[in-house]
Design a protein around this nucleic acid. Structure first.
Lengths: 340, 340
DNA sequence: CCTCGTGCTGGGAACGTTTCCCCATTTCTA
DNA sequence: TAGAAATGGGGAAACGTTCCCAGCACGAGG
């Protein structure tokens, strides 16, 4: 689309018999141009198939019209929803989305920062756990690079963000199990480097405490938000004596793994074991039985975060911390415990 | 990372006491620079935290260092693997990946082309079904924009591509069912706008014909590669009298849906119904029983396609059509039919 | 009739690199 | 030893756009 020498602004200017400057004004919808001139320029643009050269615009305006999306190998459905929401908002804007997945293991903050620096971005969208990384945010601020945060769990008031209330959501999920009659409830935590894992545990414990239930440490297992890690954690929980009658997994992938682990032990879900997930990702409807889960509006969150970012880029004052509502979706993986 | 006036090449030149031209040579690893000068420049670069301005480079070299990835709302796991492979190859290169999902419904070829044109890309990676779109490829060629194709099924010899043999793979899957003793085999096709859907059907029919089995049209249902569409198609197939003893779904999402539909009818998989999927996506291991499926090396394919694209961008001659091997993974969703 | 604002337009200088062309010095070849 | 070739370096133009500033017409008010 570019090699066979594209039309430049002076070609258009020559054809429309105006100056390059005027063409620029027309392209950017600036005032001080007569209607007649405007239409003449538009015709010339169409005839020459003129498209402004983004690199040149970027050079003089010191803008690259690129927005980065930083995330760390979460579940596929999460990534896709994130991208969908961000792109949806970008539709019709001249900004483009550059994906920047980072490996927590190999890449340290400095490397991420170097990556961002060399990528020449105008702004970044930070998904967890980058959205909770204080050092990263400080660097960004010092570097003058605008950012917005998705699902931060701490350090609020630190730039625009969109989140849901992980604590309240986890509390609600646990209360659902308690109200069904469960007393011995296992928890599978997510990746400890995600602050959401702690927030969700706190919510769970609040519900249990309120109901007068003490959560034995043996009932808390840690995973990494992946199916395989969830499988291992669920196996450990189900090997306890007595095993829990319900398991609260901190995302759907690990909840699905819990169902698989239960099947291995010959347990039926939900008769022998209730399972609750988190996120309402695709996987929650694909497994059997479909998962009771917390709906987290990831796509909306990404959309809103991108919206706030665009506002900042337009020079408007920075937005604050936004909360989006969650929702407990009761499907078929939870039931009262078997009476024994 | 950019607003507080970054160091420019002349700052570095001044500090290292050489000309801007020399700095440029060092940055680009060109010859004609003494070691001593080179280290002096490197030191200055580090001290000033100099990073070349991509926009300026792009302007003079007429390169944007952006590569687009065009795909059309396929399953999340497919997208993620695609991106993973492409990014893996891009690691260490200066090119960045811009994601360009397109809606087949709303966007027609011209809009896609306009999108690419305005995105100022250096090259594009085409995933299905864009990789089979003749008009799109013609436009790209005329516009001088290099491209590489992922999983094309027709119009080969039309630019570098990486694919697997859909026909042979589908044939192998069908032969597996036949060898188990199945004779009444249902097929759930994928989105008709993907040429792979036809190729996989052809392979299936080849296997059946070879075994002397005629495939009744009533046994062929169409889906859209999504779980929901697969659910509806599977329900229709299972409502037949007699129902098929095995169903071959053209991707894993629809195969998972088939298992769900079977459960609705009170059928057990694989005792009452064998199910075969396609792709070996995450979902195939998450459902119960785990799916017998064809492993499609999506990540490798994206990696190789990106590799070929980079070769073209370096001015080397265009590669041809590459084939990657598939593999039939026999898991627990297939078994001999119940004797009746 | 002169002046003064106001709306439209153009000239020229940036923006930060690379590249073309040039010169001086060193090294190799015959 | 002379000439050719290679090496190390610099000056200035170019890439395509936007932005600052000035100029020009036109109508209104004195």
């Amino acid at each position: 689309m570019s090699r066979p020498k594209r039309a430049t602004i002076v070609d258009v200017a020559r054809m429309a018999e105006v100056s390059a400057k005027t063409v620029s004004r027309v392209v950017n919808n600036e005032p001080h141009v007569t209607e007649a001139v405007k239409t003449r320029v538009h015709e010339a643009m169409r005839a020459l198939r003129y498209h402004p050269n983004v690199a040149a615009q970027g050079l003089v305006r010191s803008r690259s019209y690129l927005i980065g999306l930083v995330y760390e190998k979460p579940s596929p459905s999460y990534v896709v929803e994130l991208q969908k929401g961000a792109l949806e908002r970008l539709h019709g804007e001249r900004f483009r989305l550059v994906v920047l997945p980072v490996e927590s293991v190999t890449e340290r903050e400095e490397e991420i920062i170097a990556l961002l620096r060399s990528a020449a971005l105008d702004a970044v969208l930070l998904a967890p756990p980058a959205s909770d990384n204080a050092a990263l945010m400080r660097e960004l601020r010092e570097g003058g690079m605008p950012f917005a945060r998705i699902s931060p769990t701490r350090l609020l008031g630190n730039g625009p963000s969109v989140a849901m209330d992980d604590v309240a959501a986890a509390q609600e999920a646990a209360e659902h199990l308690i109200s069904l009659g469960h007393r011995r409830i296992g928890v599978i935590k997510g990746d400890p480097s995600h602050a959401a894992a702690d927030a969700r545990l706190v919510g769970t414990m609040q519900a249990l405490t309120k109901a007068g239930i003490t959560l034995h440490p043996e009932l808390i297992e840690s995973g990494l938000f992946t199916f395989d890690s969830g499988l291992a954690a669920a196996r450990r929980l189900l090997a306890l004596n007595p095993p829990p009658t319900a398991i609260l997994a901190q995302n759907d992938d690990m909840a699905a793994a819990t169902i698989a682990a239960a099947r291995e032990c010959g347990l039926h879900v939900p008769e022998d074991l209730s399972v609750v997930g988190f996120d309402d990702s695709d996987i929650s409807r694909v497994v059997w039985p479909p998962l009771t889960t917390i709906r987290q509006p990831v796509e909306d969150m990404a959309y809103r975060a991108m919206d706030m970012l665009l506002h900042v880029l337009k020079g408007e004052p920075e937005g604050g911390d936004i909360h989006l509502a969650h929702e407990l979706l009761i499907r078929r993986s939870t039931a009262p415990p078997r009476a024994n």
